[in-house]
Simulated assay, not measured.
Amino acid sequence: MDACIKELYRIGIVPVVALDDAADALPLGAALKKGGVSAIEVTFRTAAAADAIRLLTREMPELLVGAGTVLTKEQADAAIEAGAKFIVSPGFQPELVSYVLSKGVPMCPGTATPGEMEQAMALGLSAVKFFPAEQNGGAPMLKALSAPYRDLLFMPTGGVKLENLRTYLALDQVFACGGTWLATKDDIKAKAFDKITARTREAVKTMLNFRIKHVGINSKDEAEAKKTATLLCSIFDFDYNDTELSVFTGSAVEVMKFMGRGSLGHVAIGADNVDRAEYYLRQRGFSFDESTRRVDASGRTTFLYLKDEIGGFAFHLTKN
């Protein structure tokens, strides 16, 4: 996976914005960053695009800034000169794709059909935009297209909003979703940056979808664990499930057969995507115990402990 695409995968959401005035670029970038998203696609739908990209890349290097609606080589040159880290187009132009790639910049062209996707793959691309997503069948269509193109990653854009965000991101080959709903042109014009921050924060919360999966209780030995689990099951009518290392009482409480992690025990927090959960928690200042990381066959993290205890409990992330 290309380094830029990998970063976008961790971020998960790419706000797609049109700026009439480059002076709005920095307060917009700050609003998105405050809301938790550190990527932005500035579209070449206005004359201010190149100046806005230049300001953002110079003043906010922590943001991953791309250029969208790039239709010509001249626009690509302007975007790259301004500092854009990736280029996005609404459609598939083989000549434009080849030109951008020759400049050493990642390109994510818009595709809607198997023929366009195969042409993109023939040019060496591993990631494309699916556009317009909802008008082309939405998540069900993208799921069908993913089956024959298992090595191709997608960024659905067009009609993506809070209500269907998780449906798209649940597809394994979707590396990120692009959307205009986070920072609308009207909100930018009205300088409603607090509203943009709130909407962005809501989108991140929805995407991560944190859930308490279970609480783990430490025991000095197997006998104590079974005694505790039996008591819990008798009180709350939980199902008793004896495993090698612990006894689950229903799905809510895991009684360890030894003194496990955490002074008192552990808490399992589910997330729709553990890699994204890790990324956002690191942005909030948390660190992780690398020795506990588990990954699946595709290299995506499925299990990871936070480094420090909270209230006497160790916390680990796990996939919902």
Score class of each variant (00 low, 15 high):
109 P>S: 02
116 E>W: 03
243 T>E: 14
20 D>L: 13
38 S>R: 14
168 Y>K: 07
132 P>L: 01
21 D>S: 14
185 K>Y: 00
227 K>F: 03
252 A>V: 08
48 A>Y: 05
41 E>G: 07
166 R>G: 01
194 D>I: 02
269 I>Q: 02
182 L>P: 04
101 L>C: 08
184 T>V: 06
262 G>F: 02
267 V>F: 04
21 D>T: 09
287 S>A: 14
143 K>P: 03
247 V>N: 09
173 Q>V: 09
221 D>K: 04
253 V>F: 06
272 D>Q: 04
318 T>D: 08
253 V>I: 15
236 F>T: 08
240 Y>H: 13
120 A>C: 01
287 S>E: 13
150 R>S: 14
205 K>A: 13
86 F>M: 14
167 T>E: 15
212 I>V: 13
187 D>M: 07
57 T>F: 06
107 M>Y: 08
35 G>P: 13
70 V>I: 15
84 A>M: 10
158 G>L: 05
169 L>Q: 14
290 E>C: 00
88 V>A: 13
12 G>N: 13
193 F>D: 04
190 A>V: 01
87 I>P: 01
107 M>H: 03
298 S>G: 09
59 E>G: 03
40 I>F: 05
177 C>Q: 06
259 M>T: 08
29 G>H: 11
294 R>I: 01
286 F>I: 05
154 F>G: 04
92 F>K: 01
287 S>N: 11
308 D>L: 12
149 Y>H: 14
134 E>G: 03
64 L>F: 09
176 A>D: 08
9 Y>G: 06
29 G>S: 09
172 D>F: 03
250 G>K: 10
284 R>G: 10
202 E>C: 00
94 P>L: 12
280 Y>V: 05
204 V>W: 00
49 A>G: 09
312 G>Y: 08
127 A>C: 08
286 F>A: 11
246 S>N: 15
301 T>N: 12
238 F>S: 11
174 V>F: 07
208 L>C: 00
182 L>H: 03
244 E>M: 08
77 D>K: 14
224 E>F: 01
56 L>I: 13
302 T>E: 09
271 A>M: 04
218 N>D: 04
317 L>E: 13
145 L>W: 10
70 V>Q: 12
281 L>A: 10
212 I>T: 10
285 G>H: 07
223 A>E: 12
319 K>T: 14
39 A>D: 04
217 I>L: 15
204 V>T: 02
34 K>P: 00
155 M>G: 02
183 A>L: 03
68 G>E: 12
153 L>K: 12
105 V>R: 01
41 E>C: 08
274 V>T: 06
38 S>T: 15
51 D>Q: 15
65 V>S: 03
291 S>P: 01
246 S>A: 15
244 E>H: 12
1 M>A: 14
216 G>E: 09
53 I>R: 07
61 P>E: 12
24 D>L: 07
297 A>Y: 05
134 E>V: 10
76 A>F: 12
248 F>G: 06
226 K>G: 11
107 M>W: 00
299 G>W: 06
205 K>H: 02
106 P>G: 03
315 F>K: 05
220 K>W: 00
263 S>W: 00
107 M>E: 03
296 D>L: 08
297 A>G: 06
81 E>A: 15
313 F>W: 10
278 E>W: 06
210 F>M: 01
49 A>Q: 11
29 G>V: 13
149 Y>S: 02
39 A>N: 02
68 G>D: 11
33 K>Y: 11
294 R>G: 01
264 L>T: 05
259 M>R: 12
